[in-house]
Structure formats: structure tokens, C-alpha cells
Design a binder for these strands. Structure first.
Lengths: 218, 218
DNA sequence: TCTTCCCTCGAACGGATGTTCGAATAATTG
DNA sequence: CAATTATTCGAACATCCGTTCGAGGGAAGA
């Protein structure tokens, strides 16, 4: 019988196995990349037959979607659970950064896939994940707007642009972070939040002393 | 005759054609991803035969390497050319950000490939590009160290960590930037440099009022 | 025990993949 | 002009790809 995970009745056995498969697949996708990883690689890693995999999803792309979806839902749920505990917008932002980085490092494979394989999804899969990401950015924007309420409107910074900067700062860790060498989560979150909130060299006020740079050739 | 580009004598015809191929390939890799793009796609785009491509490189991976290498060498050369014009470290950093973003947006395909397909290279190809990236980060670190010379040593921020934050902020644009909607290069560079140098909400001094956050479950 | 689902698998499908080879053409040189 | 070199190409290679099919085994409920 066709077994679309969304329409299926929950079975503990089924759910557990599906979860195993998602975890293993995420690892392979994270290591080799989505397109470079074959269904045979995944079958080997999950100790299933090639055909057996297709009982749990319909296509390779749906598998990627399921990984992305589960991971994203988890991180947003954790966020929603705890964010209301903070009232100061600066504290809210600090927690947002911590939550994001904490989840990223704890669920390294899934989150790397989420950050790196966005364009490997298409159609409804792509749209749905994209929508989740947009809502996630909006959450940051709301905190940033709150942060600027005491500043005259003309001096406020672009919330969307700033939110995307923060997100890039955080997500880029998938290209360099090494848990054995680099700072732990708390230090990392503190550095990034402080950098964003207070800047690198806060002795001087803003305003670009120099005008726009020359256009370069080539 | 075997024609490794590195050992070959320069011929204008050859160089021009190679450049065309690199540009077209970069576009395809940027659009479809390295592994999902086929040599046949590239042959079609460059209006060559499939076999004809192999006159200009030995493997698909070498093609990716050539694209990455040329792009990186160009951006670092532009940087070296103009960075010495600035003496104030804040100005140096502002120019670094401008140069990076300016090049990124002008050479969108190549830079996107450079930022997104790092792990598709292996062996000596991977090592060489990785080395260039390391040296690039070191350039930022040097500016940041200069920026902090007037600050007591105990209060200085981690230069490497901060440099990677800045780089992430800049590189992440490949996931969201739309030249038709979003800010132009000068505005973008100004926002990012200011955000990094002065922070988002610079009214308050640093120091995280709250201690480390709780460990979360899952 | 028998029956009915739930789950798994071997084998195969058509097609796409990167790369090679030797011949053919175009450009350059003497 | 002829001769040599630089560049292009059609055809084919072996291998891998995602997916399907029908049959078979195993668990669960009667």
C-alpha cells in the first residue's frame, strides 16, 4: 500500500524507523551533498535495501524535504517555547542567537543540509521550506524593531537587512566550525550577539567618514 | 597533445576561449549546482562538443578549480591594489567590505560557486583553494588587530572569530540578494561595515547581563 | 491457528553520467 | 604552396543513477 507519511496513521515502529532513516540520510547529505549522494549510499548507511527505502518516502527530493522540515520545525518550536521568557529585546536577541547556534551544533547534519541544500528542492517542497525561512527572518525583524523603538525613526536601521546579516553570520559556521578547536556554544553565541548588538570597535560613533568608494574596473 | 592550462604556452585564441568556457560553466554551476550540472549542459552552453571541452581541462573537477582559482585571484588582486591607499584601520575595513561585496555582485556566478561549492573539490584542488581562503581571512584578522591596538589587551575580541563573522555576513548574500529589489552595493557595504564596526543598537555598552542560557533538551 | 495488513527485498528498467579515442578540420609556420 | 601544429568532433565506453514491480517474510489481531 502506498504510504505517504503525512496521510499515514502513526505507528511507533514506523516512526522510529523513519527517524533513523532521516538521521542517517542527513549525515550522508551533509557529507557528500544532496546530488552527489546516491540512494544506494543511503541504503547502505541505513542497512536497508534500495527498494525498501521507498516505503518511507516517494522520491529522493521528498526525503530531503522531510529532513529539512523536521529540523526547521524543531528549531522554531524550541524558540517559541523559551522566547516569551524574556522581555528585554536585547535579551530576546541574545536568546535567539543562542537557540540558533545551539541547535545548529547539536543537529549539525540536518542544519547543514538545511543551510546548504535549499536550492535542491523544487515546487511545493521548495515553497514550503522557503516560507518557513521567511517566517524565521520575520521573527528576527520583530525583535530588531522592538530594539529600535527608543531611537528616532529616521535613524533606525533596516530591520530586514540587519536580520539577514545576523543570519549569515550564524549560518556561515557550517563552513568553518570545528567543535574540537573552536569556541563552545555559549562563548560563540555571546560573541556573535555582542558583535551584532554592540559592534566590533564601539569606541567611535557610526557615520561613514568617507564617501562611496570608486567604481572599480573589471 | 595534452594541454594542461598551467604548462601551456599562452595563445590569445586559447585564452579567450578558455575564459568564455569558464564564464559559461560558472553560470551553469551557479544555477544548477556543480554535481547536478552535466558536462553536456556545459557543452550546450559553450556551443562546443562534449569531447571538445576536454581540450581545455582534464576533468570536471579541474574546471571547477579553474573557476574558483581565477575568481579568487581576481578579488585578492583588486584588494591588494587599493587597500594600501587607506591608513585608518576603520577605513581599511570599510574598503575590504566594499571590495568583497562589489566583486561578489559583479561576478555573481563565479563567486557563488566559490562560496557554495567548496566541498566539491578534493585533494590538491581543495587544498589550494582552502589555502587562498585562509590567507583571505588572515587579511581581515590583521585589520581587526590593528583596529584594537588602542584597547587594553584583556578587552580585545577574538580576531579570527570576528573575521569569520564578518565573512559569513557578507557571503550569505548569495542566498538572498536580489539586485532588482535589494540595496545597491554602496548601501549594502555601508550597512554591513557599520553594523560590524558599531553594532546594531549602540546605545548600550556590551557585557552580557544574563549568564549562559540553560542547556536545552533534545 | 488463520488471516490481514505492514514492511522488506532482489532484480531489473531506461536513461544519464564523466571520460576517451582516433579521425577530421582549421590555423599557423616554413 | 606544403607541413606541422592547434583545435574540434562523433561515436562509443563502462558505470552509475532514481525508481518500479511483484513476490516474499514477519508482526498483530481474531
Amino acid at each position: 500500500m502506498a504510504a505517504t507519511p503525512t496521510t499515514r496513521l502513526a505507528s511507533d515502529r514506523y516512526d522510529a524507523r523513519l527517524n533513523e532513516i532521516l538521521l542517517s540520510s542527513a549525515q550522508i547529505f551533509a557529507e557528500k551533498g544532496f546530488h552527489n549522494a546516491s540512494m544506494r549510499d543511503i541504503a547502505r548507511a541505513t542497512r536497508t535495501s534500495l527498494a525498501g527505502l521507498y516505503y518511507y518516502f516517494q522520491t529522493k527530493e521528498e526525503l530531503l524535504y522531510l529532513i529539512s522540515c523536521f529540523a526547521f520545525d524543531q528549531v522554531t518550536e524550541l524558540l517559541a517555547q523559551h522566547l516569551s521568557e524574556y522581555s528585554d529585546p536585547r535579551e530576546k536577541l541574545r536568546f535567539f542567537v543562542f537557540n540558533h547556534l545551539h541547535f545548529f551544533i547539536r543537529h549539525w547534519n540536518e542544519t547543514k543540509v538545511l543551510a546548504h541544500e535549499a536550492d535542491s528542492l523544487h515546487g511545493k517542497y521548495f515553497d514550503e521550506i522557503m516560507d518557513k525561512k521567511r517566517r524565521y527572518v520575520t521573527r528576527i525583524e520583530r525583535i530588531l524593531t522592538e530594539l529600535q523603538q527608543h531611537i528616532p525613526e529616521s535613524r533606525r536601521k533596516d530591520a530586514r537587512l540587519s536580520a539577514l546579516c545576523l543570519l549569515g553570520m550564524m549560518n556561515w559556521i557550517y563552513t568553518w566550525y570545528n567543535p574540537k578547536k573552536d569556541a563552545n556554544i555559549h562563548k560563540l553565541a555571546d560573541v556573535m550577539a555582542s558583535l551584532f548588538l554592540d559592534g566590533f570597535d564601539s569606541t567611535k560613533a557610526s557615520s561613514p567618514a568617507s564617501g562611496p568608494f570608486q567604481e572599480q574596473r573589471l
